[in-house]
Amino acid sequence: MATIEFVDVTKEYPNAKTPAVDNVSFTVHEGAICMLLGTSGSGKTTLLRMVNRLIDPTSGEIRIDGVPTTQQDPIALRRSIGYVIQQVGLFPHLSIEDNVRVVPSILGKSAAETRDRVDELLHLVGLEPAEYRKRYPRQLSGGQQQRVGLARALAADPAVLLMDEPFGALDAITRARLQDELLNVQRGVRKTILFVTHDVEEAFKLGDQIVVMSEGKLVQEGSPIELLAQPASDFVRQLVGADNILRQFEYQPVTAALEPATDAAQERIAADERLLPALLRLIQMRNGALAVVRDGETLGQVSLASVFASVQSIHRNASAASGEHNRSADSAPVIR
């Protein structure tokens, strides 16, 4: 595991009016999935490619576990970092097995030594080794190819994984499956993952931390809930859909709607649950309340009234923060 620190990172290209990446600083903690979210041209991919020094920053530095990347040999650095790209980039002339063992192989390991590791990795990404080991990339679907891409990136057991819109070229169903799969894999391997996306849903689904980029600048950085609750600007509010009441229910914890416990609370709900499942249970119960418990201790309760009140207050805060705000076309109607 590793911590990645970005310190005043700037990348300027000659002949460009504005920097591609402009004075960006933030920290990704060990074992976290950090989503770099932004539109195309926001500098998110440039930022990612500076981590493994495919691009070198003009100024500032990136530290992995405190060591600036510029102090390391770029080749050795890249071999210690997993890299997954949208176009997958499997080698068409090599079997799946040989594709997965590319990094161990350039590190000088033989096929015999890495055989078990390849099997383990193919299992991990949901491909049966006996069936897929000897096949070739063109015999696989796009989704299967990206699974191999993920296995290949994990082959040398890197502490850091860089993913550049890895699921961007896949259809919606395959993308959702691979997102689930990635979360599954991550539970086992606990890598520090930097993940570039322009898809807000993907950012919220996968991210422990979201870094919103726009025109090379870091606009806001925080957990999905922080972004929803306190968007730093109208841009972020529109991007993350802070006005979207469903997303609020999906990501706000039940503790956001806590009220003092009463006799109405016949059933219990864990404190780390989200508002949406609580709301669904409250609707099923028709009335009443859920006791919110953490480690067997009752913190309070949530009821339909308290849930609505909390969402309204979040929304009021958001409106107050931006003065008069225009409801964006795609936002859900607000309950008043």
Binding site: I75, Q87, L162
Partner: peptide, 13 residues
């Protein structure tokens, strides 16, 4: 495929 070359470089070839 340019992506094969990019992947190769990105993996430390």
């Amino acid at each position: 495929d340019p992506s094969a070359i990019e992947a190769g470089q990105g993996m430390g070839m």
